[in-house]
Amino acid sequence: MNSIEAIIIAIVEGLTEFLPVSSTGHMIITQNMLGVESTDFVKAFTVIIQFGAILSVVCLYWNRFFRLNPCKIFDAEAVKGITGVAKWKTYGKRFLYKFDFYWKLLVAFLPAAVIGFLFSDAIDSMLENVWVVAVMLVIGGVFMLFVDKLFNRVSSDELTEKKALYIGFFQCIAMIPGVSRSMATIVGGMSQKLSRKTAAEFSFFLAVPTMFAATAYKLLKLILEPGGLAILNENAGILVIGNVVAFVVALLAIKFFIGFVTKYGFKAFGYYRIIVGGIILVMLWMGYNLEIV
């Protein structure tokens, strides 16, 4: 893989990671079209550059992700003159406000962490199957044409532990290449009566621990392989370029997506998935070799 190929794949990652169109599927197809051999490093590269994408979430939602927004409970005036048990209750609420968000992220993250660890080999074997990617793009696209009507009722934007866990199980569906982690988690949120915007934003937040764990696991796995550390040293520049490009492009993609999906919904993404998946299926049926070697 050269620098130009790395930049192109990173652009695709940044554009598609947070859109409900399957970043994994698009990177697999892009890799094939570029003729990039599926080496251990290339497989690791497509996962490691997700780190740049998740940094864009942390950057855009810095205050919310680290709970820096002011809260009345935090004000000095709010605890002025309060003593004893009442004071401890007040500070207890402050503690819960700070960490409740992270607890729900952990709850949502756990299903994918467990299933991903137990079935990592099976998941990796599916990643190179272009048929699976194409079929799931079409199936997911058809579903997205109706998702706004199926889940158009917002009862409360409050995220409970139960809702977080439910979204976490939905995220596991995205281990099938072509499904889209973003689509699965957003639909999971909307099925729990969250608004499109709230579901999308929680999907972004959940991407941080999920993709960080995947990146760390892939990196560690490569390092532990014979000659893995040498491969990383030789390709350090390409990894840096890939992460920087994915970071910048993902920043722009997130801003576009939130505004677009809040106003127009998901139907356009459904049509896009059907068209792309359909083209790939036709090419496969015509005998084009799109499998990654």
Results as ranks from 00 to 15, higher is better:
Leu68Thr: 07
Gly278Pro: 00
Glu77Cys: 11
Glu37Leu: 07
Pro209Arg: 08
Ile49Arg: 03
Leu60Ser: 11
Thr24Phe: 15
Ala250Gly: 03
Leu284Gln: 02
Trp88His: 12
Ala200Trp: 07
Thr16Gln: 06
Lys72Leu: 13
Thr24Ala: 11
Leu34Ile: 06
Pro111Lys: 10
Val244Gln: 03
Gly237Leu: 10
Asp75Ile: 13
Leu220Trp: 10
Val154His: 02
Gln50Ala: 12
Met283His: 09
Glu5Thr: 07
Gly270Ser: 06
Leu222Pro: 13
Gly140Glu: 02
Asp40Tyr: 06
Val12Arg: 00
Lys218Asn: 12
Phe169Trp: 08
Ala174Thr: 00
Val179Lys: 04
Glu37Arg: 02
Phe41Tyr: 15
Ala122Lys: 14
Phe143Arg: 05
Met175His: 08
Lys43Ile: 12
Leu290Val: 10
Ala236Val: 10
Met136Asp: 07
Leu284Met: 10
Val21Ile: 12
Tyr217Phe: 14
Val135Ala: 08
Ile29Lys: 00
Ala200Ser: 14
Phe256Gly: 05
Thr39Gly: 11
Ala236Asp: 14
Leu55Met: 11
Asn289Met: 04
Val248Gly: 04
Trp62Thr: 09
Met1Leu: 08
Ile241Arg: 01
Leu229His: 06
Val133Gln: 08
Met27Arg: 06
Asn129Pro: 11
Leu15Met: 07
Phe109Gln: 04
Phe204Thr: 00
Leu159Thr: 09
Gly25Leu: 07
Ala236Met: 14
Thr185Asp: 11
Gly259Pro: 10
Phe99Asp: 04
Phe18Arg: 03
Ala184Thr: 01
Ala122His: 11
Ala134Arg: 02
Asp157Pro: 02
Phe247Lys: 06
Ala6Asp: 07
Asp157Phe: 11
Arg181Leu: 13
Ile258Val: 15
Leu281Ala: 03
Ile11Ser: 08
Met175Arg: 06
Gly81Ala: 12
Ala86His: 07
Lys87Ser: 14
Phe247Asn: 03
Ala122Val: 08
Glu161Gln: 08
Ala113Asp: 03
Cys71Tyr: 07
Tyr264Lys: 13
Met1Arg: 01
Ile8Pro: 01
Val245Ile: 08
Ile115Tyr: 13
Tyr272Glu: 00
Lys93Pro: 06
Lys267Gly: 11
Asp157Ile: 04
Trp103Tyr: 15
Asp148Gly: 09
Ala76Gln: 05
His26Leu: 01
Ser56His: 07
His26Phe: 04
Val245Gly: 00
Asn243Leu: 02
Arg153Glu: 14
Gly270Trp: 01
Pro226Val: 08
Ile275Leu: 05
Thr215Tyr: 09
Asn63Gly: 14
Phe143Trp: 13
Lys163Met: 06
Arg181Asn: 07
Asn129Met: 12
Glu128Tyr: 11
Gly35Ser: 05
Gln50Pro: 09
Gly188Gln: 01
Val245Leu: 07
Ile139Tyr: 05
Asn32Glu: 10
Ser155Thr: 13
Gly81Tyr: 04
Asn243Cys: 15
Gln171Gly: 05
Glu17Met: 01
Glu225Met: 15
Thr83Ile: 08
Val47Gly: 11
